[in-house]
């Protein structure tokens, strides 16, 4: 039989249940904290490796403002001279922030891009992280020769089918990264 619903019982029951649940969560948090950090660091390391030319010494993360937001970048140098930059760049996609890692070589060309996190529609905008034809068009993209915008906006990029907003956000994130790259070069 359920306990009587008087104030004392109700307060006691809720307090005990909440206390116990918080304790369980705290315990699980402590146990999973390191694995989560490791998993996130792995994702970051993988995407940096993906967008920079192989070889070269990778620097520590450095702060940078990209598209008006605080962000970070990494420099890969060979024999002391910076050869390429991996710039983290965030924009707003169709249903939330879209964060990219953009690799730019010292001559201002894009080496490759990779999606760090997104919340786009599965099967549509989410293809920006998996769709080969969409992603490969950024490899070796030279902003001096082509226009970094989807064809609908008069650019040279093929958008993902039925996901123009995501594709635009993707292009904007790269544009912001390129602008930030100019700032780094100017220093």
């Amino acid at each position: 039989m359920a306990a009587e619903s008087n104030l004392k019982n109700m307060a006691l029951c809720l307090t005990l249940v909440c206390l116990f649940c918080s304790a369980v969560l705290a315990a699980v948090y402590v146990v999973t904290k390191d694995p989560i950090e490791r998993a996130n660091a792995n994702i970051l390391k993988e995407s940096i490796g993906l967008v920079l030319p192989p070889g070269g010494d990778l620097s520590e993360e450095r702060p940078l403002e990209v598209g008006g937001l605080p962000s970070v970048y990494y420099v890969s140098s060979s024999a002391g001279t910076p050869a390429a930059y991996a710039i983290q760049s965030s924009t707003v996609g169709f249903s939330g922030p879209l964060t990219l890692m953009v690799g730019i070589t010292a001559d201002g060309k894009i080496y490759n891009t990779s999606v760090l996190s997104h919340s786009e529609t599965p099967g549509l905008g989410a293809k920006c992280a998996t769709d080969e034809p969409f992603m490969t068009q950024f490899e070796g993209f030279d902003p001096a020769e082509k226009i970094l915008a989807v064809k609908k906006d008069g650019g040279d990029l093929d958008a993902i089918t039925a996901s123009t907003i995501t594709s635009r956000a993707y292009a904007l994130a790269i544009q912001n990264a390129l602008a930030a790259f100019q700032t780094i070069k100017g220093e």
Partner: peptide, 8 residues
């Protein structure tokens, strides 16, 4: 369940 008051 047996120890939880109905109202909460």
């Amino acid at each position: 369940a047996p120890r939880v008051p109905d109202k909460v």
